[in-house]
Amino acid sequence: MNLYLVKRILALIPVLFVVSVVIFLIIHITPGDPASVILGESATAQDVEALRQQLGLDLPIYQQYMNWITDVLRGDLGESYFMKESVSEAIFSHLQPTLSLAILAQIIALLIAIPLGITAALRRGTAADQTVMGFSLLGMAIPSFLLALFLILLVGVKLQWLPVAGYKPLEAGLWNHLKYLILPAVSLGAIQSALITRMTRSSMLEVLNMNYMKAARSKGVKERQLIYKHALRNAFLPILTVIGQTFGGLVTGAVVTETIFNIPGIGQLIINSVERRDYEVIQGVVLFVTCVYVFINLIVDILYGVIDPRVRLERK
C-alpha cells in the first residue's frame, strides 16, 4: 500500500510539469497583462511598458518561466500582483469558503440522492421510480445558475429567510457561517444529486438481482439489513467514483455559483485573477487544482479498499 502511494505521488510530477508549461504559455500568450490593469483604463502604452519593465514582464518568456519554476520548486508559488499576500496565502484564504461550500453541497446531494436512488431501485417501474427519474433528468438538464437565481428570488428576496449573497467565515459563528452557504449549497447539491441518484439506482439494480441477495433473503436476513449492508455496500464503488468526481468539481471551483452568491472561493479567485491577469495566482491555482484532483482520486482509490476488501487484497 505504501509503495502504491509513493508511486501515485511520483506519477504526479510529470503531470504537474506539463500542466505548468501549458498554463504558463497560455496566460502569457493571451493579450493583456498585470501592468495595464494596475495602471487603469486610461493609461498609455508607454506607461504600461515602463511598469512591465519594473515588474520583469519584459523578459523573454522562457526566462520568466525558469524564474517562476525555480521558485516553485523551492516551494514558493510567488506573490500576487494585486493582493498584498503570497499566492499560497491567497489559495488557502480562498480555500476555506470553497471547502465549506463543497462539503455542505455534497452532504445535501447525498442526503437527497442515496435514499431516492435506493427507493427508485427497489420500486423499479412504479410511479415512484418514474417520478424520481423524472426529477433527476430535470436536475441534470437545469444549469445550476438558473436554480441559484430562482432560489435567490424566492428565498432571499421574496421570503427574506436567508441572505441573497455574501460569505461569513466560521469564526463569525456556525449559524452565521451556514446561513450564507445554504442557498448556494442547495443549488449545487440538488444538481449534483441528480447524477448520484441515477448512479445509485442503476448500481443498486445490478446488485439486487445477484444470487447472493437471493441467498441472503432466503436465509432470513432482515430487509433493512439486506438493503443497507448487503446491497448498498456492494453497489457503492461506482457511486463513490461519481461522488469523488463531483466533489473534485466542487472543491476546484464552482465558478458560476461562487460568482452569483459572491462567495470568495477558489472559483472566484480564478475568475478574478484571469480578469486582472494576475499571472502568478492563475499559475499557482491551476497547479493547486491539479494536485487536488489527483489527491481526491487517490483518496477515492483508498476508500475503495476500505469499502470493498477484495480491492485491498488485489493490491497486496
Binding site: E85, E89, F92, L95, Q96, L170, E171
Partner: peptide, 13 residues
C-alpha cells in the same frame, strides 16, 4: 486539516 490551514492563513492575511 485543509480548512484549518485555510482559517489560520486567512486570519493572518
Amino acid at each position: 486539516s485543509l480548512a484549518g490551514c485555510g482559517a489560520q492563513t486567512a486570519q493572518t492575511g
